[in-house]
C-alpha cells in the first residue's frame, strides 16, 4: 500500500481552505502544535504542513493561473529519511507514510535540506521538525464514520480538487485518475519518486478575446471617455 494525495490543478481554485483545515486538525494532532510566531503582529509566520502557491503558466493570451497546493509527497525514495542521523524521520513499511518522531528529533534541519518540495518546517518552539502526517490520526480512526477517514484537506476542499488513496492499487480512484488524466510527479529528474501526483489542467480552446469586433456604439463611448478625461 502506498497512500498519498492526487491534486487536480484543473479545479483547484486556490482558496487555501485545505491549508487552514490542515492547520486546524493538526495543531491538536500527533505532531501538535503547529506553532505560530507573531500571528497578529507585523510579521506573521508559523508552521504549516500544506502551502498553496500561485503561478502564471503560458504567455498572454494563452496564459492561465495555476493554483498549486503542496504538502509532503510521501516519496518512495525519501532522502529526508536516509539523511536523518537520529532515526526520528522514518517511512512506514505498511502504507509508505513518512513521519517524524517528535521524541527523537534533535532539530538539525538536515532532513529539510534533503526535501525538494519544501514539505518540512522546523518548529522553533518545540525545536523539532514537523511535516504532513497524511492525517494518520484520522485515516485509521475506527471511531469516526468511514467516509470521514480521510485527510482533513481532502474532506474540506470545496472544489473536490484533492483525492486520497492508494496509488499502488491500479484500480483505486486515485490510480485511475492519474492514468486517465495524465497525472504526473514533480521534479522527476531528482528521482525521489513522490507518491503524490498532480493532474494537469484540462485543455480548452482559448476564448478569442482579441478578435471580438467592437460595436460602433462602444467605439464612440470610448472616444468620448478619452476626450472627457483630457
Amino acid at each position: 500500500m502506498r497512500l498519498g494525495l492526487v491534486i487536480d490543478l484543473d479545479t483547484c481554485v486556490g482558496c487555501h481552505a485545505c491549508a487552514v483545515a490542515c492547520k486546524e486538525w493538526n495543531t491538536s494532532g500527533t505532531t501538535a502544535p503547529l506553532t505560530d510566531y507573531d500571528p497578529y503582529g507585523a510579521k506573521p509566520s508559523g508552521v504549516w504542513f500544506n502551502r498553496i502557491r500561485h503561478f502564471e503558466v503560458g504567455d498572454y493570451p494563452y496564459n492561465k493561473t495555476i493554483n498549486f497546493p503542496m504538502s509532503c509527497m510521501h516519496c518512495e525514495n525519501a532522502e529526508c529519511v536516509t539523511v536523518c542521523p537520529t532515526g526520528a524521520s522514518y517511512k512506514r513499511a505498511e502504507d509508505g507514510i513518512v513521519l517524524v518522531d517528535q521524541n527523537k528529533c534533535m532539530g538539525c534541519n538536515y532532513c529539510s535540506w534533503a526535501c525538494p518540495y519544501g514539505a518540512r518546517e522546523l518548529d522553533r518552539v518545540s525545536g523539532t521538525m514537523k511535516k504532513c502526517t497524511l492525517c494518520i490520526d484520522r485515516i485509521y480512526d475506527m471511531e469516526i464514520p468511514e467516509e470521514e477517514r480521510q485527510p482533513a484537506c481532502v474532506l474540506t476542499c470545496p472544489a473536490h480538487a484533492r483525492m486520497f488513496g492508494d496509488v499502488d492499487d491500479p484500480e483505486s480512484p486515485v490510480s485511475r485518475a492519474v492514468r486517465e488524466r495524465g497525472g504526473y510527479q514533480l521534479m522527476p529528474e531528482l528521482d525521489y519518486n513522490p507518491t503524490n501526483h498532480y493532474l494537469p489542467p484540462r485543455v480548452h480552446a482559448p476564448i478569442p478575446i482579441e478578435e471580438l469586433k467592437k460595436k460602433a456604439v462602444r467605439k464612440v463611448k470610448e472616444w468620448v471617455n478619452r476626450v472627457v478625461e483630457r
Binding site: S45, R51, H54, F55, E56
Partner: peptide, 21 residues
Amino acid sequence: TATGFNRSTVRILEQGHTFGT
C-alpha cells in the same frame, strides 16, 4: 520541471504566505 509545465513559461504570481516562512 518543478511545476510540471514543461513546455510553457511559468512565473510566480503569489508565494501564498504573508511574511517569511
